[in-house]
């Protein structure tokens, strides 16, 4: 088990809505806004806005995460965007 996999849910929560750089196994690097960390697998889910208006979603698998560096905190607009990415349509309407 790596240090990342051993973190508690409350520790993982501190990364949510932060822009991070992730160093992964075999020198792979990823950057994006943290959507969540799966408490079962420690997979870290990142969102990365694309120029065409879409979102690129990446996940780095928990066992492959070597280091996570916090770069910036999301503003309210970005937080809203991140919070609603996977919400079903009807829930999206209710929460607005």
């Amino acid at each position: 088990m790596t240090a990342w996999q051993k973190k508690t849910p409350l520790e993982w929560l501190t990364y949510v809505n932060k822009e991070v750089g992730v160093l992964a196994a075999e020198k792979h690097k990823y950057q994006g806004w943290v959507l969540t960390v799966d408490p079962v697998s420690a997979n870290i889910l990142l969102a990365h806005p694309l120029e065409n208006g879409k979102m690129s979603i990446s996940a780095v698998l928990g066992h492959a995460v070597q280091d996570v560096e916090i770069l910036t905190e999301a503003d309210d607009e970005m937080k809203e965007k991140l919070a609603h990415l996977f919400m079903p349509e009807e829930m999206r309407r209710c929460s607005q």
């Binding site: 929560l13 979603i57 996977f86």
Partner: peptide
Amino acid sequence: EREQQGRVALRERYLRSLLAM
């Protein structure tokens, strides 16, 4: 309770991302 609520929020979002995929 705070830890459980945190775990629920994190897990629910991850499961939703799998469904979206």
